[in-house]
Design a binder for these strands. Structure first.
Lengths: 346, 346
DNA sequence: CTGAAAGCGCTTACAG
DNA sequence: CTGAAAGCGCTTACAG
């Protein structure tokens, strides 16, 4: 029945510092801003004492005045692709090192992401990072209206607006086509995932255009619908519906490829790579597991994350950004066991 | 060269509302607190107009006074277990629905998590939720000193302090032992993961104690070291080092079990379940995939998350919590294809 | 180079 | 039931 619990939330404030050091709070405050005019030894005294008594400026009070929060919003949904959890942790760690904290907006269904974003916006994030999902134009505009530019990571905005960091997926698609064609494949197919995802359409375009450019018939398309194991599996089960069985296929990403291959082997009794070669995209950890050993186009993750952090810092500092979308060349095509060399030996 | 960019961060404030409605800011403010004394129609007028002009109280200004932030810190690391990404998204979504936002503290190595937590603490979270990693006593105390009680999800605190929500892992271990013994297994083994993780030691204890209680020799232990596919795989490769080959094994969790099984089959040529039966723990999505079809003890995820949210709300409201650690009975043992019935047919 | 003052957007005693 | 005032912990013109 006795609710109130005495928690000692007695925070150390500028006043304490000022009192201890016999200075004004203005002076104390200035010590924490490198660009502020203040005597070097005064600053040192403040900083030293602050460290000693464990003082840290209250970011809420700060942002009430500066209008910057050092908060980045991270929008996620679904996460059926194991590619993202790693991105999340690493990006968070990197951004934290740069002094910006991440606040999450999550929803299981992409449709419900909007209200999560709305709630997050309340905290006036300096910017938003969108992962593994999309934000419709209205939501993006709301973010921007609230002073938070949005960065789309990996998957770009459907309407082409907002900032973006992405692998050159068209080139990645071409690499996959070349790899297959160079090894004697003559009948290609592409397993597409979410049609609204830039990653999907770009990979498809690079793959198909290159195939045609090199004299092959346009690759057949199998539509998996979304980026998930289950979707890849279901797509694999429908392989026989194709007018002609392909000998080489590129899947929209690794997790789709893994599901696709299993459906072929367990469901249809079609052997990979003996009967058909399969290439994935991302190079997630699982792709290297003995059970899969998937040949795949690697994503240049380190570069993509570094670019994102750099972009985030520019945006947070409200600098002008010359280029809205950063394209990183795809990582290497990692050869494992799911592609067979079909050239006739001479 | 022209840095300053005119962003219209013109937020709607209480003043705007007060002016529009011809009231004082005090009255306007009260409208947002259900327990405040204010005329019903006054409140309605405020709320209506607020909705119309899109006013939302500034949480920073609020928490400067109330000392509550509606922020929960979420501490993650590693994430080599696919169990956690789902927990993260769903927990975030649930908590957001309850009006609390999640701020992330992440580090790739568990050792580096401390400074991430420190930075997060700056934002005065109402509570902390620890996922997939541990917080040493010092870090936990720092959180509590900053007014943020910490909840350990799934894996409990090593020192037994802090709040916790967890499956009854001892019982889960027993269930696995019973399942194996009931089906004629006579030589058991346990593949352990991180020895500092409560999940690991509890599952091991339940499993081993039950085996002994039912008259079997104590299960042999294979130490995988951590909760990851790679660790499980490496452990599997060492099966032959055991004095006696077991016929039934429980792995610390699913991802370890999956790695373990693959090592047996691909590396050692030992068939699962023909030669040895394997049980996992968690029932992650992957456990149901055709390539694995892992028999496993399911975690009661829904209940665990609901309990966490309830606990978080109590804690955020600074109510007294009678029970520090909540134990949820384990989910059912899901039978798939990795356990064989070894009873002699009669 | 430093300090006194104003103010960010709120909430909460205190009067009335 | 409502309003004027004080204050949360800061930063930032403005004087000096």
């Amino acid at each position: 029945m006795t609710h109130p619990k005495p928690i000692s939330r007695t925070r150390v404030t500028v006043k304490d510092l000022a009192r201890d050091l016999g200075m004004s709070v203005s002076t104390v405050s200035r010590a924490f801003y490198p660009e502020a005019v203040i005597a070097a030894d005064t600053r040192k005294a403040v900083l030293d004492h602050a460290a000693k008594i464990g003082y840290r400026p209250n970011p809420f009070a700060q942002s009430l005045i500066t209008k910057k929060t050092k908060i980045a919003g991270m929008v996620v949904s679904g996460l059926t692709n194991p590619f993202y959890p790693e991105v999340m942790t690493r990006l968070t760690a990197l951004l934290q090192q740069a002094g910006v904290n991440l606040m999450l907006a999550a929803a299981e269904q992409p449709e419900k992401i909007d209200e999560a974003v709305e709630l997050l916006l309340t905290y006036q994030p300096d910017l938003m990072i969108v992962l593994a999902t999309n934000l419709d134009s209205r939501a993006r505009e709301k973010c921007e209206a609230a002073g938070a530019p949005v960065i789309f990571f990996n998957r770009l905005s459907a309407d082409g607006l907002g900032y973006g960091v992405s692998c050159d997926n068209v080139e990645g698609g071409r690499m996959a086509a070349d790899h297959l064609i160079d090894r004697g494949h003559r009948s290609l197919a592409y397993v597409s995932a979410f049609p609204g995802a830039s990653t999907n359409v770009e990979r498809q375009r690079g793959f198909c255009d290159r195939a045609v450019a090199r004299g092959l018939p346009p690759p057949q398309i199998i539509d998996a619908g979304v980026f998930s194991y289950e979707a890849g599996y279901a797509a694999g089960l429908r392989l026989r519906e194709l007018p002609q069985q392909p000998d080489g296929v590129l899947c929209a990403n690794d997790i789709v490829a893994i599901g696709f291959i299993e459906a072929l082997q367990e469901g249809l009794g079609i052997s990979v790579p003996a009967d058909v070669s399969v290439i994935g995209y991302d190079d997630i950890a699982m792709a290297g597991w003995p059970s899969h050993r998937l040949t795949t186009v690697a994503q240049p993750l380190d570069e993509m994350m570094a670019a994102t952090v750099a972009l985030a810092r520019e945006l947070a500092a409200e600098r002008q950004i010359p280029q809205r979308v950063l394209r990183i060349p795809p990582g290497p095509l990692v050869e494992r066991r799911t592609v067979r060399d079909r050239r006739v030996q001479t």
